[in-house]
């Protein structure tokens, strides 16, 4: 079964957008590998002919009528903003430069 190196753990933390301390990375390396060992049990089962179950109730394409309805009060929503500018959330810049 797969085993995670420290570099793998750092890569997954980057994918998950988690800033982790060296201590956290070291602890997670051990713990994640211990948990991955438990996953190995699933390899005992031949599942080639088994369809996956993503959810358990057979509801599909649930749509509501396309009717305009009142939205949430913008003031109540923006009250939670860490940083706002009028009726907008201030987001970190994603494009470099001035």
């Amino acid at each position: 079964m797969a085993s995670l190196t420290r570099a793998d753990v750092e890569h997954v933390a980057y994918l998950a957008r988690l800033g982790l301390t060296p201590d956290e990375l070291a602890r997670l390396e051990g713990q994640l590998n211990h948990i991955l060992d438990q996953y190995a049990k699933l390899a005992e089962l031949d599942t080639d002919a088994i369809p996956p179950t993503a959810q358990t109730i057979e509801l599909e394409n649930i749509l509501r009528d396309d009717v305009a309805r009142p939205s949430l009060d913008p003031e109540a929503v923006l009250a939670n903003a860490p940083e706002r500018d009028g009726d907008a959330f201030v987001v970190p810049a994603i494009l470099g430069g001035e």
Partner: peptide
């Protein structure tokens, strides 16, 4: 929470999706 996010991100990451997530969904059927 960090541990679970790490586990989930790994299980869904490129190259591991079939081995972990899809496999788990099939066992879920069983």
């Amino acid at each position: 929470v960090k541990r679970r996010i790490m586990l989930g991100t790994y299980a869904l990451s490129a190259g591991y999706y079939d081995a972990f997530y899809l496999k788990a969904l099939k066992v879920r059927t069983l």
